[in-house]
Computed example of a mutant assay.
Amino acid sequence: MRLSMTMGALLAGSLALPPAAMAQPMAAQQYITVRSEPIGASTKLGGTVEPLKEVSFAAQAPGRISFIAGVEGDYHPKDTVLVSLNDDSLKAKWRAAYAEFVNAEAGVGDAKVQYTREIYSGSAMESENTGMAIPKMFDRYMTRPFSDMIGADNPKVARWANVRSQGARIQQAQARLEQARAALQELRASLRDTKSIAPFDGVIVRKHIEVGDTVQPGMPLLEFADTRNLQIKVDVPARLMPGVKQGMSIPAKLDVGDAQIETRVAQIFPMADPQRHTVTVKLAVPPNVPGGPGMYAEVSIPDVTSPVEQLPVIPKTAVLWRGSLPAVTVLGSSGQPELRMIRLGGFVNNNAVSVLSGLSPGDRILANAVAAPTGVWNPAAQAAQ
C-alpha cells in the first residue's frame, strides 16, 4: 500500500509544475491571446555585412616604405598619416626647384626695374644709355641730328623698340617664374603622394606591405574602413524589385547570435546584373549591432506577387527554443500549461513574428518564454493543430 502511494506521488510530480514555477508571480506568467494579421509572402536572401565607407590605398610613386601607422584593427582618426614612403630624393629636388623659383622671382623684379628706367630715363640712341659723358654728348649733338637730317634714323621708332624690348624681358621673366612655380607644385604633389592619409575615422582592415618594402605606382598598400557604420549588401532577383523601395524598412537576421534587426533601404543600384539578373541593394544597419564587416546576414525581401495570408502573430519573447526547434507554452483546455512545437514564419516587426503552423488565432500562450514553466507536451493537442 505504501509502495503504490509512493509511485502515485512520483507520477503526479512528473506531470505537475515544479515548485519554482508554482511560486512565480502572476505577472511573470501572463498569458495573452494569439491574434492574426495579414502577412504578405517574403523571400529570404543571403547578404554580406560591409562597412559604409571603405577605401583602398595604392602607391602613387616609387619608393621604400618608411612608416606604417599600425596593424589590422588599429583605430585612427581622420587626417592621420597611415603609410609614408621615403622622400629624401624628392625633398632634394624640391629645394633645387625652390632655388630656381627664387632666381626667377628676382629676374622679374630686375626686368621691371629696367623697364621703368627705360620709360623715364632712356633714349633712342644706345650710346646715351651707356658709355662715358663725351661719347654721349657727341651722339646727342652730332650723330642724332645728322642721322635725323639725312633720314638714316627715326628716333621715335628706335625709342619704341627699346621700350618694347624691355617689356618683352618682363614677360620672359614672368614666364620663367611661372615655370619654376609649376615645378614646385609638381614636386609638392609628389611629396604629398608619398603619404597615405585617413579620409575619415576608421580602422585598418587589411595591410599588404611592411616597413622596408619597395613599391611601384599602383601596388596596393592597405585597406581602411569605417567599421562603426555598417550596411548589408544583398543581390535581389529582378522579379522581387517591385517590392523594394528607397527608404523602406526590411527585417534582417545577423549571423552573430541570430540577432534580428530592422534595416532601411539606403541605395538601389540603377542596373541589374546582365548575367545573374539581380539588382544590388544596400541596407543601412542601425548602430551598435553585433557583428562586423564580412559576416553573413539573412534579409527578408517582400514578394508583392504572392497573395496576402492571415497568419497568427506572437511576440518574440513568447518563443521558447528547444535546441533548434521553436515552441510556445499554451494554456490547455484543462487550464494547465502545455508545451507546443510551432513553425515560425518571418518577422512582422522588431517585436513580433508570424507562425506558419502549430497555433491558431484565439489560443492562449505565455507572453514571456523566460518565465515559462515546464509544462506537459501534449501530442494529441499538437496533432489537432
Score class of each variant (00 low, 15 high):
residue 148 D to Y: 06
residue 148 D to C: 08
residue 149 M to W: 06
residue 150 I to N: 02
residue 150 I to R: 02
residue 150 I to T: 03
residue 150 I to C: 01
residue 150 I to K: 01
residue 150 I to S: 00
residue 150 I to P: 00
residue 150 I to A: 03
residue 151 G to D: 01
residue 151 G to W: 01
residue 151 G to R: 00
residue 151 G to E: 01
residue 151 G to L: 02
residue 152 A to Y: 01
residue 152 A to H: 04
residue 153 D to Y: 10
residue 153 D to I: 09
residue 153 D to P: 04
residue 154 N to K: 13
residue 154 N to S: 03
residue 154 N to Y: 10
residue 154 N to R: 14
residue 154 N to M: 10
residue 155 P to W: 12
residue 155 P to L: 13
residue 155 P to N: 15
residue 156 K to F: 06
residue 156 K to G: 04
residue 156 K to V: 03
residue 157 V to W: 03
residue 157 V to P: 01
residue 158 A to D: 13
residue 159 R to C: 08
residue 159 R to H: 10
residue 160 W to R: 07
residue 160 W to V: 06
residue 160 W to T: 11
residue 160 W to D: 12
residue 161 A to M: 07
residue 161 A to G: 08
residue 164 R to M: 11
residue 165 S to P: 05
residue 165 S to Q: 12
residue 165 S to C: 03
residue 166 Q to V: 02
residue 166 Q to K: 05
residue 167 G to M: 15
residue 167 G to P: 09
residue 167 G to I: 02
residue 167 G to D: 10
residue 168 A to I: 07
residue 168 A to H: 07
residue 168 A to C: 06
residue 169 R to G: 12
residue 169 R to S: 05
residue 170 I to L: 11
residue 171 Q to Y: 04
residue 171 Q to C: 08
residue 171 Q to H: 02
residue 171 Q to R: 06
residue 172 Q to N: 08
residue 172 Q to M: 11
residue 174 Q to P: 09
residue 175 A to L: 09
residue 175 A to G: 11
residue 175 A to Y: 04
residue 176 R to E: 01
residue 176 R to L: 04
residue 176 R to M: 04
residue 176 R to T: 00
residue 177 L to P: 00
residue 178 E to W: 00
residue 180 A to S: 14
residue 180 A to P: 11
residue 180 A to N: 10
residue 182 A to T: 15
residue 183 A to T: 11
